[in-house]
Design a protein around this nucleic acid. Sequence first.
DNA 1: GTGTCTGCAAAGTCTTTGCACCATA
DNA 2: TATGGTGCAAAGACTTTGCAGACAC
Lengths: 159, 159
Amino acid sequence: MRGRNEGMGPWWHGRFRGCGYRITAGRDAILDVLTRANKHLSAEDIYLKVHSIYPAIGLTSVYRTLEILADMGLVLKFDFGDGRARYELAEGSKSSHHHHLVCTGCNRVIDYTDFIDEEVELLKRTEKGLSDKYNFRITNHLIQFYGLCDKCAKKKGGE
Amino acid sequence: MRGRNEGMGPWWHGRFRGCGYRITAGRDAILDVLTRANKHLSAEDIYLKVHSIYPAIGLTSVYRTLEILADMGLVLKFDFGDGRARYELAEGSKSSHHHHLVCTGCNRVIDYTDFIDEEVELLKRTEKGLSDKYNFRITNHLIQFYGLCDKCAKKKGGE
DNA sequence: GTGTCTGCAAAGTCTTTGCACCATA
DNA sequence: TATGGTGCAAAGACTTTGCAGACAC
């Protein structure tokens, strides 16, 4: 749906301008990397990838842009427990709705889409209920499962 | 169920010894604080509370004990997006199964138990499915909703 | 031309680590 | 008494902030 209208520039230009932000080469490059990557990247991952196509970028700008994107809801920020945040484009461009399965042994993360329909259905109901009850304007949700992947389970645990 | 057998010492002594850990005054105090508090506390919160009943405690020990407890599964570690981790006793003592509703404006966190039964039922099925498909030994899950509380919604957003 | 954005360096925060001493078992 | 635990201070890691120059609009 998005990203097909190259005649009018990348899809995010409109959103950016609409929020009063300027379009810069660095921001373009960051969005470009995020759009191509269908994985959750750390700020440094993004910095390195962007740096290879736009060497003038600084890590600071990556953080600043990611903060804007997260505020706008274009990017989701995740914590997988290893002390650095991960970012991925909110669904729409390439990614589809998914959740994460995190190995607490090696920090490997698996995106899964199984049961998503049921989850989404329940989440919608829950969101509605919580919104009403607590007067929250819910914008987002997070579901993650934690456990040991097969390799780590063999390493660590007997039983 | 737990915490009633004062004749044999606090409920966690057994678990601790069983894992080869020693019982110390500091650890007792930390567990004590965690047991009383039915809220998610930061390491520093815990440190301060423990310090008032056991002044010899150091922040380092709080972190070290919390890591042990999280590894043992006695304590859950949360990230609400404000850069510091929160800890709460896993269900059993005082707390019941609940999830969190986080205001991205003021970082207020509401524990909710609504829809928990349905959620748990779905989560169980999902866990089973994911375990089988990805060969994960799932030990835990996390559900959080993000949004703006009524105050922050008024402040920030029109619409 | 004006207000925003930028990179660099420095600062900030939370958390972890090194080490000698102490306490539990 | 032997091993694991502790506090303190220092180090470490990620992220944010200050500032002068550059750029978008």
